[in-house]
Amino acid sequence: MTRVYVLLVVTWIRAAAQYPVSMTLLTAGSFLVTGLDMAAIAVIFSHVGSLGGFTLPEVMFLYGASGMSFALADLLFGNVDRLGQHVKAGTFDAMLIRPVSPFVQIAVERFSFQRLGRVAQAATVLAIGLAHLHVPWQRLWMIPVMVVCGIVVFTAIWTIGSSIQFTLTDAGEVGHAFTYGGGQLTQYPLSVYGADLVRAVTFIVPLAFVNWQPGLYVLDRPDPLGLPYWLRFLAPAAALVLACVAALAWRSGLRRYRSTGS
């Protein structure tokens, strides 16, 4: 699976590399445009000292961690949301006759290398935030764990969204509400939102486990909503459950696949 994934990625990058200027510009453009997000946060902090009870470096840390997860998930598997287009165009049939999971094939189809720009931007913000925070080294282990769990959570939501497209080919936007929406939502400390929303993204769509709950552990902060302490360690479990749901949704979608005429 991984071997095939890497193989397909290399092939697509080689195809894209035939236009080196376009590839460089797109990557730089992605870096700059996503940087505007961070600029917006900086503007807010030029007017207020804290956001939802969090300082600028803390917000940069939360933003960077969620951004890393989102950007890496988008880079590696984001193309899965093009399923509806492939179903409509009939190109999905061609993926089904290959001895390789159609999920992998669709994830890397026209691999969007330029999304690396967004990863770089998030990594920069995360690094700057951490440099100002003096997180004790005993708590640092949580950072890679939360980034990986975040990738799984976003990928799973994308997969569920595209599984719906097996039957409703135009439902791509439903998935976007949760992925792009979730990416935006988790850029800020969840304490700036209402309590009901935070509970919903903790227990229903587990976006809070992308950066918020594990982030509270890294920052060693009390939960503004008073939710139990052990929730901070639940990100891997939440990611695993969501991944299983996504796998089931994908399989059942595939069985319902109707193909096109001709």
């Binding site: 092939t11 195809a15 009939g90 190109t91 049939d93 061609a94 006759i97 290959r98 001895p99 390789v100 999971s101 026209r110 001709s262």
Partner: peptide, 20 residues
């Protein structure tokens, strides 16, 4: 996926190759 290794498929209306 196992069958894919034992069967060849051609769709005349649509290519199974990679366009680019």
């Amino acid at each position: 996926t196992t069958l894919a290794r034992r069967i060849g498929v051609v769709f005349g209306q649509r290519t199974t190759l990679w366009w680019d």
